[in-house]
Design a protein around this nucleic acid. Structure first.
Lengths: 256, 256
DNA sequence: CCATCGGCTTGATTTGCATCAAATCGTCCG
DNA sequence: CGGACGATTTGATGCAAATCAAGCCGATGG
């Protein structure tokens, strides 16, 4: 592993707080690997031997049943994945597939579990990461069970706008059929939902979406901080856990 | 707090592995409280000051949006809840309501976080608990996104049968309208789904369901260990995390 | 440049589920 | 016991989303 890779790992929220020795243990058997687009990194049901850390590219996690497939989440750097399976030394519940060329750090699961037993600060970081991911899924379930597909799309767009802090234009970072599956609908209905949102100031040109009237869009979307996490990512906030405490941190830093 | 309560906490999987000092810190500010049925223990959005441990009774966790409510999970003893919010010191994403008279242990969140920093074994237990809950939600999302409502009911019945290891009869432990919400459907459609399952050997008498033909039911349900966790609870298996490693433990203990 | 292919859109149809409405059932209480 | 209430069931209807079927469009390659 290269020295630059070591530095990148050190900067991960998971390791930011860890003792030097912990870090040595964890990285001893680790390696960075590159994968072409469309590579299956992991199949659901497989035993999980490594913790994966996406350093560059995009990875999709999906689930399968009875010849149907659904996208559960799309990861962008820097994200860890299948941490829960590593902690429990259990089989994966989700399959992982690269969507683009990816650079991925793989840390042996044994090393992670050993490090947790040795270093409470590291174990705390793992817990925080897991707690953040857990809350992400709670939000996801509420989104699916309480909203219809157009409402989910509208909130997705508003969340993306807030996350990228990108004015009134949102870039879709993945194919629409993948976005559709992530939002729990068919590609056909995603098209139709976009059409519906035209009346609320949304226009689509390929992967560029412009939100001309966010007030109208919000009226339909009714975004809710207990479902939609609109913490702007990048900078301080890189892990799910950081995003989870963003709102309360915000109110503590700037009271009123 | 009574001495008998202390013993019950010691037996929790969360504390089974903890150092004596950890245990002292955690229980110092803890207390057991009793609540009547229908009590709101926690409202989504509230700051979470305690880790809750359900010792007796039933608790429902639900989410709300736009005047709609959905049941996210139903807890039976012994279960911890809102651990993720405690770890992150964040606001609750779910509301908690007692369904029956309940006995609940409340441990100050500060104490939990302090204990985690002091005792890596305890922090490991917290991580395992969180990882187990996380995987429960992954299963839940796959269930919702990949199956229709009758399939979900069929799998629910099969899972209950396996969990209670109760021959061919399953007891519904909660009102049907709550079960309906848990399974993501209306009470009306739950009725109709039960009617559909009659053709597969399912008959309902109040809260007693008999499965006369599990083979036929399984043919419709297509249960999958990567969605349905059929680990029999009670005895060794009390936490979600235990249930998660049940299958792999099983194959290690009894190879072939 | 044209042909091809995959992804996306649009339209027609079907299906699944929610909603609305009313009847039934069981339980609790005056 | 009679009545009331809530939970459940059953039936009728409407809507949302999936499916089926073409067309369109942009990228790619001969």
């Amino acid at each position: 592993m290269r020295a630059s890779d070591i530095d990148r790992i050190k900067a991960l929220p998971l390791f930011a707080d860890a003792a030097a020795e912990t870090f040595r243990v964890a990285t001893a058997g680790a390696h960075v690997q590159r994968f072409p687009p469309g590579t299956m990194l992991l199949l659901e049901g497989d035993p999980v031997d490594f913790l994966y850390v996406l350093l560059d590219g995009q990875v999709e996690l999906h689930g399968t049943w009875n010849d149907h497939e659904t996208v559960l989440t799309i990861l962008r750097p820097v994200s860890t994945f299948i941490l829960a399976a590593v902690v429990l030394d259990a089989a994966a519940l989700m399959s992982a597939r690269t969507l683009e060329r990816c650079e991925i750090l793989m840390i042996p699961g044994d090393a992670i579990r050993t490090a947790m037993r040795l270093d409470p600060r590291f174990a705390m970081s793992v817990s925080r990461d897991l707690a953040g991911c857990y809350r992400g899924l709670v939000r996801n379930i509420k989104n699916i069970k309480l909203r219809n597909s157009t409402e989910r799309l509208a909130n997705y767009l508003l969340a993306q706008r807030a996350i990228d802090s990108s004015g009134s234009t949102v870039i879709l970072h993945h194919e629409k059929r993948i976005l559709a599956s992530l939002l729990g609908m068919t590609p056909e209905n995603l098209s139709r939902s976009f059409a519906t949102l035209q009346k609320h100031g949304v226009s689509v040109q390929g992967s560029v979406v412009t939100l001309a009237n966010t007030a109208a869009l919000e009226q339909l979307a009714k975004p809710d901080p207990l479902i939609d996490n609109n913490a702007p990512r990048g900078g301080d906030i890189v892990a799910e856990a950081d995003a989870e405490i963003w709102l309360s941190e915000l109110s503590r830093t700037k009271p009123r």
